[in-house]
Computed example of a mutant assay.
Amino acid sequence: MVTSYRFTARRRGLAAAGAAAVLALTSAACGSSSDSSSMPGMGHGSKSSASSSPGASPSMGGMPGMDHMASGNGLSDTQDGYRLTSKEATLPSGKQTAYRFTVTGPDGRPVTGFALDQTKRMHFYAIRSDLTGFQHIHPTMAADGTWTAGVSSLPPGSWRLFASFTPNTGAGRGKDFVLSRTVTVPGNAARTPLPAPATSTQADGYTVTVKGEPMAGMAHPLTVSITKDGKPVTGLEPYLDTYAHLTAFHEGDAAFAHLHPTTKVTGDHGGPDLTFHAELPVSGNWRLFLQFQIGGKLHTAALTLRVG
């Protein structure tokens, strides 16, 4: 498993001057499995949405987008003695199911103490190998350290499941981890070609436009603009302590990156423009999933970005 990329970041003030690159794999809180932005069977199209749960608790950290870096690209189930374990090697097709997993520490025992960040102690992601079917879930943890993620209906294929967290005790206290395992959903898995790179996409009547031409390994700003019927959208509501949640997956290996907007949250009136500082370490196509909330409803837009 490759572990050399530096993708994740948790929010806090950067001391460096200038535009700092932030690539965050979100760590998060004990939410509910129903508090998810799962996109059942979401293909490469972007006309899907999911309802979000109200009631977010404050997170630790500084301004949105001001994050510290954490090692790992999420493509391993182990790092620094921490391990993502699960008995589940397959999941059923076409129906909601519960995926149970545990994070064990260097002592081999289940970890039960997790730091709160972006209102959650655990973020859980599912993506199919062709970068379709994106789901972002906030699982629940039992007293023994077993997490349960309510995964929406999955089409057949190979899926990678990511757990992003930060221990608040033990050897890894305060460090971001992103670990993953793969599962198989039996059935006829028809591969969906990745859409060509584009600068804009549609989601639930909203137009999302991305400006910027990032180069691999270099910090570069990205600006995301949201409009509807040709008019700027200025009613973005806070979602996970930001006005938008941006997740990226690399074509081929599904390496996972998460970027936060640097726009400060000042109320329920964000938009239409959100700025991200990105440093995508490898060239190629990245599939971006932008989640934003308006009127209590969560929308997800998908777009392919080419990194030179």
Rank of each mutant, 00 (worst) to 15 (best):
T119K: 03
S49E: 12
P193N: 02
P110W: 06
Y243E: 03
S76F: 07
D80G: 02
P238L: 05
H44K: 09
L246R: 00
T266R: 11
T192C: 04
Y125S: 13
K231Y: 03
D35N: 14
P92W: 08
L274W: 00
A143V: 07
N285A: 08
T97S: 15
F7C: 12
T3C: 04
P214V: 07
S51K: 13
W147Q: 10
S4A: 13
R181G: 04
V210N: 06
E251T: 12
D241K: 05
K297P: 00
A15L: 12
V2E: 07
S36M: 10
R173D: 10
L298V: 01
I127M: 15
S86I: 08
H136W: 08
F114R: 08
F256Q: 11
V224F: 02
P54V: 07
G65P: 05
Y239P: 02
R306H: 02
S49G: 15
I294P: 01
S37V: 13
A143Q: 13
T263A: 08
D144F: 06
G172Y: 03
V111W: 05
G65R: 02
V210Y: 11
A302C: 14
F162L: 15
P238W: 01
K297D: 00
R128I: 08
F124H: 15
S93E: 15
W286M: 13
V307T: 01
M66P: 03
A257L: 14
T182M: 11
V233P: 07
V307S: 01
G157D: 02
G74L: 06
P186D: 00
A115M: 12
I127Y: 06
H136T: 11
K87Q: 13
M60N: 11
P221S: 12
F7I: 10
T304N: 03
A216H: 08
F256I: 09
L288R: 02
G150V: 13
A196F: 07
T166H: 04
L246W: 06
G270W: 13
T242G: 02
G308A: 14
G145P: 12
A142V: 04
A98Q: 14
L236C: 06
G170N: 06
T275A: 04
G81E: 10
G72L: 04
S76Q: 12
F276Q: 00
